[in-house]
Design a protein around this nucleic acid. Structure first.
Lengths: 191, 191
DNA sequence: GGAGTTGCCTAAAGGTTATAGGAAACGTAC
DNA sequence: GTACGTTTCCTATAACCTTTAGGCAACTCC
């Protein structure tokens, strides 16, 4: 009997594709094995189990997303960088909902996915170079940006914006304008 | 043999408690049945299955959260209302991580959980009465607030803020200040 | 207290995860 | 090209979770 040619990478990618098509919950070792026309036990040579597969998908997605964000940021600064970065996130989430969902599963502290997470933080920080923030304000701003990008993507994916006009695109532009203004005016003086 | 006294409500609440203690993934009918010292099949008289149980937890959490938010908003307006509402969300997420996670599971369009979702949107809109926004800007602002509250809670729960100073509390205050300023100045004029 | 309803049970079938151990395919060396 | 060692994939097995079907006992109501 010929070999199927499985590798860890191919198994993880198949899991990621399945997550995008059928949702992260549908990613089971059984389903992935069926996709390769292979028995379930065969996968255990390449991934340590169900949790390991998900962690692999999370890492793959974080890496892909960081690569895209890095490209988007090249040569841009200020508002341009903000919009390019944010839109990369949003587009990735819409294009790859399963992969994006995987980025939010908690991973053990020693996982390679943690490094990918740090890469994202560094990229977000680099946006702020176009604005005039001190170190403390930068951390707050990174957390604000992360919250907005992630929150918007998550709510949009779950359909929360589908039931009222105007379309999400318009809100997206308005929100990015507001964030740009906030960063330019930071720190904010209370009324 | 005496009866265990199960009801749909008690089963859903047990599931919600289990979600808070052990994570939403740990919420299985088997685990809930064990908690009641009852056979699994017995639960099917009270919930239609695993998905139905989760939907019930989602609805319970959305209702509880809307109740708290409604209390928090009573008698407040402007920045006070914004802070009270936002902090209610954040605190609920930290107090009940499993219930909070359940609020994000997609529910069918005919589910009672959809009504609870509408209640949340209405509450968020009521915050904006203290600011001077037109109808379109209000929708954008509701989406911005929802994104920030949800995104922050989600990132905080997943531990994203644990690995760098300053503590999340400080960022939370700074972010609410920024949101208040944004709402007061909306619409934002681009540079 | 008897009839009807409800609640919880046993039984059974199907799917997923995981481990152990074996056999065939592949790469390499001679 | 054949023999060796390694890797890949297999069969077999066991445990857990979900779901349905059908039955008996406990409650309720008259």
């Amino acid at each position: 009997m010929p070999r199927a040619g499985l590798t860890t990478d191919r198994v993880v990618r198949a899991g990621a594709d399945l997550a995008d098509e059928a949702g992260l919950d549908a990613v089971t070792l059984s389903a992935v094995a069926r996709g390769f026309d292979v028995k379930v036990a065969s996968l255990y040579s390449h991934v340590a189990g169900s949790a390991d597969l998900r962690e692999g998908i999370a890492r793959l997605a974080l890496d892909e997303l960081a690569d895209r964000a890095s490209d988007a940021l090249a040569g841009r600064s200020g508002r341009d960088a903000l919009v390019a970065f944010a839109t990369t996130y949003r587009d990735y989430a819409r294009e790859h909902p399963g992969r994006y969902a995987a980025t939010r599963i908690p991973v053990p502290a020693d996982s390679p996915a943690v490094d990918a997470g740090r890469r994202h933080a560094a990229l977000t920080r680099s946006i702020l170079r176009g604005y005039d923030l001190d170190a403390t304000a930068s951390v707050h701003a990174v957390r604000l940006l992360g919250s907005v990008f992630h929150g918007f993507a998550d709510l949009e994916l779950s359909g929360s914006f589908d039931h009222s006009a105007p379309p999400a695109d318009e809100s997206w532009v308005a929100i990015l304008d507001a964030l740009d203004a906030t960063l330019r005016r930071w720190p904010v003086s209370p009324s």
